[in-house]
């Protein structure tokens, strides 16, 4: 019915196609938000505390690659909420602007938690050590001195990132099956394109090079061991796609 590695049929929702990277994608379909909807939202917000959303206290910017086609790469903005010292959950957007599209969710766990997962599960996760040490992952706007301890912790974690809106493909609405993402690494095909990094660095006044974050993180402690079940493509040379197919539904009442 739908696969993460299959392009949608051409309709207004699928857009007209675009180049790689996220910022070039056309805006979502739809009419501008009306004043009455805005007023409704403002009213609801006064009455509703939105506690889970208020827990998002970290904005991290990095890059991700599609697990089924690592040539497709995007800039990702993570809004991070901490469940405990070892488990983080992130809403991932394609920019840091009010108009940003919600493109997915990433879960992040410490190495200790990761080791408790079944091998079958571990292959869906990626390591963060390279991404952090290379200066790609950064808490936007936070001086490096203040993020050192958090980045040191982050370097030892693993992530599982599902993308639900392939905006970089030009999709003007979220189409198709969710896609698994992987992290940038030091070797092909895991290298993130230089122009993608340069564009991010310019816009956020970040220097991720050896003169900047990468250099500052040279002394950062590296994980003693990266579990080889993570970053599946590195050992196996294969990617993952997700298929959604028609099936029977177990029911307790008629549907629909």
């Amino acid at each position: 019915m739908s696969s993460s590695d299959q392009n949608p049929a051409p309709t207004p929702a699928s857009g007209s196609g675009t180049t790689g990277g996220t910022s070039a994608a056309p805006g979502p379909l739809g009419r501008p938000t009306t004043v009455s909807s805005q007023a409704m939202d403002m009213g609801a917000q006064v009455l509703q505390p939105l506690k889970p959303v208020r827990q998002m206290k970290q904005h991290a910017c990095s890059f991700a690659l599609y697990a089924h086609d690592m040539r497709r790469q995007l800039e990702a903005h993570h809004f991070v909420s901490r469940l405990n010292q070892d488990v983080l959950q992130c809403a991932v957007y394609d920019s840091d602007k009010p108009s940003a599209r919600l493109i997915g969710v990433e879960y992040i766990v410490s190495d200790g938690i990761f080791e408790t997962l079944p091998a079958e599960e571990q292959r869906l996760w990626h390591s963060h050590a390279y991404e952090v040490k290379a200066g790609l992952w950064t808490d936007v706007g936070v001086p490096e001195m203040l993020q050192t301890s958090e980045m040191g912790r982050m370097a030892k974690t693993y992530g599982k990132f599902w993308c639900a809106w392939q905006a970089d493909r030009g999709d003007r609405l979220p189409l198709g099956a969710p896609a698994l993402m992987v992290s940038p690494q030091a070797v092909e095909p895991g290298r993130v394109r230089a122009e993608l990094v340069r564009s991010r660095d310019e816009r956020f006044k970040v220097d991720s090079s050896a003169r900047g974050l990468k250099g500052a993180r040279v002394e950062m402690e590296e994980p003693e061991w990266i579990n080889p079940n993570a970053d599946y493509w590195r050992m196996h040379g294969k990617g993952f796609a997700v298929d959604v197919t028609a099936s029977e539904m177990k029911r307790n009442a008629p549907f629909p």
Partner: peptide
């Protein structure tokens, strides 16, 4: 009807040709 999801191992496209055009 109903819907289910599955993960499928795929061959990775290898050609690195810079920005990809759709």
């Amino acid at each position: 009807k109903g819907l289910k999801t599955d993960i499928r191992e795929v061959d990775l496209p290898t050609a690195i040709a810079g920005a990809r055009i759709f």
